[in-house]
Simulated assay, not measured.
Amino acid sequence: MEGSELLWGVGAVADRLGIATPTLRTWERRYGIGPSQRTSGGHRRYSETDIRRVQMMNRIVSSGVPAQSAARVALSLDPAGLLAALDSDEPGASRPAHVLATPAESRERIEAAACELDVVGLSDLLSDTMREWGVIGGWVNVLAPSLAHLDLQVAVGAAGEEVRRLARDRVESELRSLSRGFGARFTGVRPVVLTSVEPERESLTLLALEAALAAKGVAAVNLGCAITPGALGAAVGRLAPAAVYVWSMTEDVDWLDAVVADAPPTTSFLLGGEGWAPSRPVVGEGGREAERAPDLLATTDRLITMMQTTPQPG
C-alpha cells in the first residue's frame, strides 16, 4: 500500500515534525533512519511508516537515550509496532539515559525470567516495559508476543505449565495495577463494557484494553470471559454504556442480536476477534449495526470516539 501513498521529501518532513533538516540527514547517514522510497526520477522520499520511525527516534532521543540506542529500537519495530508505541502518551517520561533494549531483547529477558520462575525479576521487567512503552506499545510489541511464545514452548514441551501460569499471573497483575493507577473516573460517566464469549482466551487482551482506555481517561467495566446472554444484557441495561466491546475467536454469536436490539439507542457495539462473519448484520434500535475492529489500537481509538460522541449524564 505504501507505493500508492503520499511520499514526503526531507524538507517537508522537517517542517511536519519540527526536526531540523541536518538532523534528519544525520540520522539517515549514521543510523539508517530515513526515507525508504524513491520517485520515478530517483529522488528518495519518506513514506508514512518512515515518518513514524523518525517520530519514534525523536521521542526516544528526547527522553535522554543515546541516538545509537534509539535507532536500534526504532528500526526494530514493524509498522504495527510503531503505531502502537506512538499511540501511547507515557513512553519517554522515565527512560534512563543508557542502552535501551529493543522489544525482542525485552521479550527474551521476560521469557528467561519466567522460565527461571523469578517472580521479582519478571515483575520488574514487566513494569519497566509498560513504563517505557506505554500500555498499547508494551502489549503489542513485548507482552503479547512473549506470552504467545511461552504458550508455544509449553505446547512443544520446551517449558512447563508452571512457566506459562506464572507469566500470565504476573502480566495480569501488572495490567490490573495499571488500570487502578490511572484511576479513570466512573462517577457520572457512561462507561464502556468489555467482554469475551471465550472461556479463557483473550482475557489478558481485555485487561490490556481496559488499562489502555484507563490511560486515556476512559472508564471501562470488564465483565471477563465466557459471558452469557443474560449477564451481558443485564449489564447493558443497568449501565446504559456508551459502547460495548465483544470478542469472539471461534464462532458467530447469534444471541448478540437480541442484546443489541434491547440496548439503549445511544449504546454502540464493537466486535473483535475472528469469530464474527465478515459483514455481520447485527441490527439494533434504529437499524444500527455492530462495527468491527481489527486490532487493539483500532479498538481503543474507536471506543474512545464512541465515548466522546455519546451524551453523558447530567
Rank of each mutant, 00 (worst) to 15 (best):
Val244Asn: 07
Ala70Gln: 07
Ile33Met: 03
Leu24Tyr: 04
Val120Ser: 07
Pro96Gln: 10
Leu83Tyr: 03
Gly275Gln: 02
Ser47Arg: 09
Gly314Asn: 08
Arg53Phe: 04
Ser279Leu: 02
Ala277His: 11
Trp8Gly: 02
Val120Cys: 01
Ser63Val: 09
Arg190Val: 01
Leu17His: 06
Asp128Glu: 15
Ala242Pro: 04
Thr228Gly: 08
Ser179Thr: 15
Leu82Asp: 07
Ala261Asn: 03
Ser106Lys: 13
Arg52Tyr: 00
Thr299Tyr: 00
Tyr245Thr: 04
Met249Ser: 15
Gly11Cys: 04
Ala184Trp: 00
Gly121Ala: 12
Ser173Met: 11
Glu132Gly: 11
Val61Cys: 10
Asp254Trp: 15
Arg109Lys: 14
Arg190Asp: 01
Asp151Phe: 01
Ala212Asp: 07
Arg95Gln: 08
Ser76Tyr: 11
Ala14Arg: 12
Glu5Pro: 05
Gly272Asn: 02
Ala208Cys: 06
Glu108Pro: 06
Leu143Gln: 06
Ser127Gln: 14
Trp139Ala: 01
Thr23Ile: 11
Met1Ser: 14
Lys216His: 15
Val135His: 03
Asn58Leu: 00
His43Leu: 04
Thr129Ile: 00
Ala298Glu: 05
Leu122Thr: 10
Ala97Trp: 07
Arg180Asp: 02
Pro294Ala: 06
Ser179Asp: 05
Arg52Gln: 13
Asp254Glu: 15
Phe182Arg: 12
Pro199Arg: 15
Ala167Ile: 07
Gly32Pro: 08
Ala211Lys: 08
Gly224Met: 03
Ala74Glu: 10
Met307Trp: 13
Ala211Arg: 05
Gly314Glu: 10
Ser106Leu: 06
Arg53Pro: 00
Arg164Pro: 01
Ala214Pro: 11
Pro264Gln: 00
Gly157Thr: 05
Gly275Ser: 05
Glu274Phe: 07
Gly237Thr: 03
Trp27Ser: 01
Val282Ala: 04
Leu100Ile: 14
Pro241Glu: 09
Ala85Thr: 13
Thr26Met: 07
Ala14Cys: 07
Val260Leu: 05
Arg16Gly: 09
Ile19Val: 15
Ala84Lys: 03
Ser248Met: 04
Pro229Phe: 12
Glu210Ser: 13
Ser127Trp: 11
Leu152Gln: 12
Asp15Arg: 10
